[in-house]
Each structure stands twice: as C-alpha cells, then as structure tokens.
Write a protein that binds this DNA or RNA. Structure first.
Lengths: 233, 233
DNA sequence: GACGGATTAGACAATGGTGTCTATTTTGAC
DNA sequence: GTCAAAATAGACACCATTGTCTAATCCGTC
C-alpha cells in the first residue's frame, strides 16, 4: 500500500539508451526530491514513487544513490546553460532604449536561469552538498555563475564600446549587475517561493536604474545630476 | 572505540541552568555538525562526540533532535543580532570621508555578520531546512536580513538628511547596498571558504564606489555642510 | 502467439540512526 | 567525607534506508 505505485506503464515509451522515458522521469523526480530533502534526506523509495517507477528500475538505470545524484546535477547544469545562451543571443546590440533593454534582459535572465526551478535547485544543492562534493561546487562555479559573469562582461564591453556605458572594470560591473538584479529577489527565491512577473519586472527596473546611475552615459536628457555638479562648482 | 570519548570532564564547570558548560559545548558542536551535514545527515552520536559528551547528556539537555536543532538556530540568531547592533553603533554620524566610512562599515558587517561562521551557518541552514520548517525561515527573515535592512535604511535616511547621500527609496538602497557589497564575496562564502581581509576590503571598496556613483552627492558640498552643522550646534 | 528485454512487487540482510533504560562514576556543595 | 545531581558507557528496541535478489508481469517486435 505504501510502496511505489505505477498507474499506466505508458505504452509509447521508446527503449533507447540515451533518452528513455523512464530515465527522464527518474531524473526529474530525483531532482525534485534531492532539492526538497537534500542528499541524505532523500530516499530512493520516495524518488521511485515520485517517478512512478519501481525502486529496482532506479537501481537498473543508476548503479547507486550517488550515481543518480551526480547525473541529476549534470542534467540541470546542462539545461541551465542552454537557457542562458539562448537569452544572451536575444540582446539587441543597437536598441533604442538601454534601460528597457537591460530590464527586459534582467527579467528574462532571472525568470529562466536564476529564479526558476533549475536555478533554485542547483544553488540549494551546491550549498547543501558542496562541502561533501567539492567537485560539484567547482563544476557549478565554472558552468553556472562563471559563465553568466563572463558572458555579461562581454556584453558590457560591447555596450561600452558603442558608448552607451561608462565602465572601467567589466567583470566587476557584471558581478554588480547580477547582484543588484537579485537584491530584491534573493529573499523570495531563497525560500521556495517563485517571484511573480510583477515582482520580477519591478525589481529588475529598480536594479537597472541604479546600475545606470552608476555606469550609464548621460544621453543629454537625463543629465540632471551632471548638470547640478557643473552649476555648483 | 567509535563511540563518544570524553577526555577530561573539566572540573571547573558550574552547574547552572542558564549556561552550563556542557550545554554550550553541545550547542556549538550541534551547530557545527548540522551545518556540515544538514538536519537529516547529522547524527546525535556525532554531535555528542564533537561536544566531548555522552549521547545521553545530549538527550538530557534537549529532549529530541528537533529541540536541539531549534535551540541552535535561536542561539546563532541571537549572537548574529548582537554583532549587528554593535557594528551599527560604531558608524560615525559626522565622519570626514563618506566612502571610507561606508567601506569600513561594509567590511565589518561582512566580517562579523555575513561571512563569518554564524552568518554562513544560518544561511545554509535556512536554505537547507527552510522548506521543512517554514517557521525557521520566517524567524530568520525577520531577525536576520530584515533587521539589517531596516537598520541600514535608517542609517541612509540619516545620511540623506545630512545631505551626504541622494536617495529616494531608503529600503531599496539598503537592499542594493547589501547586494553590491556581497557581489564578490557571495561565491566565496557560498562554499566553505572565508574571504581574506584583503578580499573583504577590496570588494567592499568596489561596492561602495559603485554605490556612491549612483547615490552619492557631489563631494564639493560635503565638508561645508558638515562644518556648518557642527558650528551651529 | 511467442520471444526477450525491461519492469514490477515484494522479500531480504545489513546498516545506521533515534530515543530509552540502567548501572556506574564523577562532580560540586555542604 | 557525604550526598545528590549530573554525566557516563553500554545495551536495547524500534524504525528507516540501502542495495540485492527473485519470481512474475508487461511491452514492442517478430
């Protein structure tokens, strides 16, 4: 009664090595449970149940708990990476309004990379199990924030070159941009909650505004502060 | 051989209810182990061993694992809070150089509240177990970042009033200040590593510089206003 | 319909953890 | 020195989990 239950074995499942349906189902369920309970707290039975699969099937696909765990991590990282590059490709090199462009970019980044399920999962897991698996932490740092950071720095370098930003240290600016964008949301997504679209938009706009106050080139109409300084001098 | 070992029972231990030495020792050890292994992964035996105490003693002081866990959390929060207010009390209301003052403040805040042992512990624990104990998350948000945030907002309000900052939304600025200060360090302290004093200082200075680019009043007026105020007082 | 690989439920031993109990020893106060 | 409270080691029942094994069942393919 309390053991894994299997509703319908899904007749259409292809039996390939790479992407068998059961395999995916196990991976998803494992991600869910590992994220909720941590490595130690997650039980194979619970994962099997959530995946609508027998425990033995789990062991057939992944030799042991740790194998499964590592497979989950790699899977999530791959997905998050794909999302990141797809977003970076959308930034308009010559849009009209830098503030709007950056805000839209920040919203998309947060929604699809940082605040989404994968993002929360991987951060939580790294913090929970990073000490036990230093290897895991290293992979994450290079493939996660590391990639976002350098990609963003490159973007800022381009924008600086087109004279829309006034940045001296691109890497620093990238880190600060990410930090600002997450200032509001961190608390929400820290827990389980997912920020609403409204919160996402609002906090992104506030962050971008501050960022541009610090790093933006005054486009003549927004030169309030600059002019003030000139006049008082 | 592998059970709790007790070297010397420490003859000088007073037997009071409030702060018995064993009690403290257990609390410290429990914090350490819970932080390393999470709630599920930590075993009472390991805690007892690390505290140089028998398992039964642990159960004598704390009825069950969960009781101990909650006591640890409350203890850490109290300590972190005390540290925070002691730091806030040191900010000079009428210093000469705002950048230096803010930088020093940020360094101290990070060293004693955010990047130190307690800070890392509480963040890790909230993220690990927050879902299982929503109560824990709520306490943390109000007593931790919440208190820092409002205290910082109040400080910025004071500084704005003395015309050293140009801020419209104090709460937002406080959040952004904290975010900027942690932009660099987050990655380091995310794992187990403790940032060096040098890293702390450098990242704080970069953050404050950006913050002041966004929110600072042109420095020409700073000294004048300050002096005027002092003289009229 | 028959075959073979995948999948299933369920039993199983081994392990390790929790919380209780007891008999003994230590400790500080008197 | 005596005494009571606290702390100790160790045994214990109980439970959950891991990973293995087996016999039965499902599935697509031939």
């Amino acid at each position: 009664m309390k053991k894994p239950k299997v509703p319908q074995p899904k007749p259409g499942g292809p039996t390939q090595k790479g992407q068998c349906a059961k395999r995916v189902s196990i991976l998803d369920a494992a991600a869910e449970v590992f994220c909720r309970k941590g490595f130690a707290g997650a039980s194979i039975d619970e994962i099997a149940m959530e995946a609508c699969v027998s425990r033995q099937t789990v062991y057939n696909h992944y030799r042991e708990k740790e194998t499964l765990f590592m497979a989950v991590v790699q899977d999530i990282l791959d997905r998050a990476n794909a999302a990141l590059f797809s977003i970076l490709a959308t930034f308009p090199d010559n849009g009209h309004n830098l503030e709007d462009d950056l805000t839209a970019f920040a919203v998309r980044l947060n929604r699809n990379c940082v605040c989404n399920h994968d993002g929360k999962f991987i951060r939580k897991l790294v913090q929970t199990e990073g000490e036990r698996y230093p290897h895991l932490f290293e992979i994450w740092r290079q493939q996660g924030p590391g990639k976002i950071g350098t990609a963003l720095a490159a973007l800022f370098a381009r924008l600086s070159h087109v004279a829309r930003l006034d940045i001296d240290d691109f890497d620093l600016a990238a880190k600060q941009f990410l930090a600002l964008v997450n200032a509001d949301l961190q608390m929400i997504s820290f827990f389980g909650g997912t920020p609403t679209d409204d919160e996402l938009e609002k906090s992104a706009r506030a962050a971008v505004r501050t960022f541009l106050r610090a790093y933006g080139r005054p486009p003549a109409r927004e030169a309030g502060v600059e002019e003030l300084r000139e006049e008082t001098a």
